[in-house]
């Protein structure tokens, strides 16, 4: 007799336990559950409209790869243009492998794929930045340089390619972790910028996050069930960031109190929404006096970090 747990919806063999919904789901019901939530997130937040030109920030990992597949499928409903952009940070033995997956998937979906590197834009690979920072005994970790430079590279490239939106693979885990990190840093402004509906600068291409309400583990499950190839290795610098500590603790809380992550995310979204209604919490980005790119300060973070590397 089959002792396997059964799907709460149809009674077939369950493949995944959605503990925060108190449901176990079979393959078919899980795919339906997953797609419905992503589509609802896209529609509720009006992420895509006809005529949009959407650049998907494709790393080759599961999150951005699924974002690409889901948006490609949505093209049947919403008439817009879609292409992929990849930023090669220059992490030897890691990003080069991921780019191979990105190339394979864009080819499979018959989409244009453009790759740009840190070396081309900033003059250094991330490996070189890390070495220079070590020599200079800098206090900032690799993730700080990588995050700031990647966002800039993505914005420059998308703007040059005349994209109206950039779709990133940020998932529920990423978003909750970022809220918590901003909280610990006392950084309200960064949380306000996370889900900006209005344009904060003419030079800044609006971001959309179709997977922001989907847990990371379910994204991996969906890709495995659908047989979508993705790069699984962990970034060699991942253990060094604050995010890693926050991630470990959030996962512990979630495993003990199922649903905590989702509750925290929606709670923070509500707080941010209320804060935005206050006039003083609305802001526009100005331009960096050195490079002219969007910045909330006189000198942008990229120029500040480049100054450190150049010594």
């Amino acid at each position: 007799m089959d002792k396997s747990p059964k799907c709460s919806r149809c009674g077939k063999k369950a493949i995944i336990d959605i503990r925060y919904r108190e449901e176990k789901l079979c393959r078919r019901c899980f795919l339906k559950f997953f797609e419905k939530r992503v589509h609802r997130n896209i529609e509720k937040n009006k992420m895509i409209k006809p005529g949009d030109r959407v650049a998907v920030a494709l790393s080759g990992g599961k999150d951005s790869t699924l974002t690409l597949y889901i948006l490609k499928e949505m093209l049947n409903k919403v008439k817009c243009e879609l292409f992929a952009v990849t930023v090669d940070e220059g992490i030897k033995g890691y990003r080069d492998k991921a780019i191979e997956f990105a190339k394979r998937n864009t080819k499979e979906l018959d989409l244009t794929h453009i790759i740009v590197s840190f070396k081309e834009i900033f003059g250094y690979t991330l490996n070189e930045i890390v070495e220079k920072n070590k020599v200079l005994r800098g206090a900032r970790g690799p993730c700080t340089f990588c995050g700031v430079f990647r966002r800039r590279a993505l914005n420059i490239l998308s703007r040059e390619l005349k994209a109206s939106k950039v779709a990133t693979g940020h998932n529920l885990d990423d978003e909750s972790q970022t809220y918590l990190m901003n909280f610990f840093r006392g950084d309200i402004e960064s949380s306000l910028k996370m889900n900006c509906d209005e344009s904060i600068s003419e030079l800044f291409v609006k971001r959309i996050k179709p997977l922001s309400t989907t847990p990371e583990r379910e994204i991996a499950a969906y890709a495995l069930v659908k047989g979508i190839p993705f790069h699984m290795d962990e970034c060699p610098y991942a253990q060094e960031g604050m995010r890693n500590v926050v991630r470990v603790h959030m996962n512990k809380i979630e495993s003990t109190f199922a649903g905590s992550r989702e509750n925290f995310y929606y709670f923070m979204n509500e707080i941010i929404k209320h804060l935005k209604t206050k006039e003083k919490m609305k802001f526009k980005l100005s331009s960096c006096i050195l490079c002219g790119e969007p910045s909330s300060k006189e000198i942008c973070k990229v120029c500040e970090l480049l100054k450190i590397i150049r010594g």
Binding site: K3, S4, P5, D17, D173, R217, A221, A238, R247
Partner: peptide, 28 residues
């Protein structure tokens, strides 16, 4: 995964079963 199929954590295993534990999120 067991025999290439995803299974839940409540699945009862038999003697001789082989399971794959895929780490899909770092820092656990």
């Amino acid at each position: 995964r067991k025999k290439n199929e995803l299974i839940t954590e409540e699945e009862i295993l038999d003697n001789g079963d082989e399971i794959e534990i895929l780490r899909v999120i770092s820092g656990g």
